[in-house]
Computed example of a mutant assay.
Amino acid sequence: MMSCKGCFSHYCILLGTPVGAQCPVMIQPNVPVVKFEDPLLVNCTSSTDQTKIMGWEAPYGGTRKEDVTSVLLNITSAYTWDLGPLCYITFLDGTQCEEEVPITVYQMPQSVSLSQSNQDNPMVEGKKYQMRCDIVNVAPSRNLSVYWHKGDKIIHIDTFSNVSSLQPLNQSSAFELTAGREDNGSRIWCEAALNFGPSGPDLPPMESKSHDMIAVEVPADLKISLNCTATGNPLPVYRWSLPPAMQKMMANQPVLTLSVPFVGTYNCTASNSQGTRTKSFIVTDAPSSRPGTTAGILMAVFLAVVLILGCVVYYKQRKPTVTSC
């Protein structure tokens, strides 16, 4: 008397004598990957002429057929994250074998964002910065790779192959960046990609917004001009917030010329009745890293992440409006 091993979709697999761990079947696609809630077809083909019955044991889409050499698993919607159907064969002599087919159910990230733990903007040459890339609601994490880009180079790669959960999770990748002089004008961003190998689907990666590094070195014996000019109607009024050593200086003009630059933050605000825009300049000591460079060299760094002033406030159709940038 045979007993029932498992019942799925009204079909049962009858226990016989197993013939060994290796089952003579071929699975197509050989690496099944499906997006969550999408349909999937998987074909199981027998490579032996001793096949009597073939079938699929699965939570849904199970089937059983006699006198066939292949059976098709039809998943109308992959609504669970853990799919491991079994393709089985009953041979003419009554023995059975089965092959588990792992199916990867994936979900693209909901968002990818780049942040800086120490809010010391802008970046200064020679200083270390803790960067973090956050990936929200991605599955499965074990197939996730995070690529860190600076300019046209990949500078770091993180993987999460040790994460066993198949359900969507939030993941993060940390990277310590040392800002260098060559980084002037470089873009920094992170990119999240799901990789399923050469036999799996080639999914497009998702990028974060980039951070810009803008640095200008100025010798201390030269003047520094900080240009905060904006055009508008009504004409903008300028207000500067200066380092403590500069507080006695008149600073109500759009261009601030410093014959003796002091280290610190120079914030300029241009405003009229229609709005306000702010631009920040940071003057800081630059470390000497080049022969012949004196310790008195300063770095004037323009904070590009702040709202930049090249904006125009004007009348349009006789109504004052603001164009932001």
Rank of each mutant, 00 (worst) to 15 (best):
L40A: 12
I297R: 08
E207M: 15
V138W: 05
M131D: 01
E125H: 10
L303R: 05
I214S: 07
E37P: 02
L73Q: 01
V218T: 10
T265M: 09
V146T: 03
W240D: 05
T51I: 13
Y238N: 06
S210Y: 06
C97I: 06
M123N: 01
L144G: 05
M206A: 11
M206G: 02
C325N: 05
V138I: 13
N43T: 15
D285L: 11
K5G: 09
I53N: 03
L194V: 01
V218Y: 01
S164Q: 07
C268K: 04
D49A: 10
L166E: 12
L177G: 02
A220M: 05
R277W: 06
F302M: 07
N74H: 13
S111H: 12
E100F: 11
T321F: 02
T294R: 14
S273A: 15
E217T: 15
A174T: 13
V263P: 04
E125I: 15
Y147G: 00
P291C: 06
G62D: 02
L92H: 12
G264S: 09
N272H: 06
G61K: 07
F8C: 08
G84F: 06
I308P: 00
F91S: 14
L73K: 00
P205Q: 10
S145R: 13
P204Q: 14
M1H: 09
G296P: 00
K153Q: 13
D93T: 13
N30Q: 13
L83K: 05
T76I: 08
I53M: 04
E66D: 08
K5I: 14
F8L: 07
D120L: 10
C44Q: 04
M249C: 02
V105W: 00
T178R: 06
L86M: 07
I157T: 15
A174M: 12
I282D: 01
P201N: 09
A58H: 07
K52M: 09
D38I: 14
Q274T: 14
V112Y: 11
A174N: 14
A174C: 14
I188F: 11
T269K: 08
Y266S: 11
A304R: 11
A174H: 08
T231Y: 04
V33Q: 02
Q167H: 07
T76N: 12
N233P: 00
C12W: 03
C44K: 06
S273N: 15
E217H: 05
A304C: 04
N252W: 04
I282R: 07
S280D: 03
S280R: 15
A139P: 05
S9A: 08
N43G: 01
A192T: 02
A215E: 07
G55Y: 04
T321G: 02
D158A: 15
Y106K: 09
P198S: 09
M108W: 02
V163A: 03
V34I: 08
L114N: 04
W240E: 05
E191G: 12
N43L: 13
P219C: 03
V19F: 03
N195E: 08
Q317P: 00
S273T: 11
S161A: 11
D202K: 11
Q96C: 03
V136W: 03
C228T: 14
L235V: 07
A139K: 04
V146Q: 05
N267W: 00
M108P: 14
T321R: 11
P201I: 12
T80C: 04
P24Y: 06
V31F: 10
P234N: 05
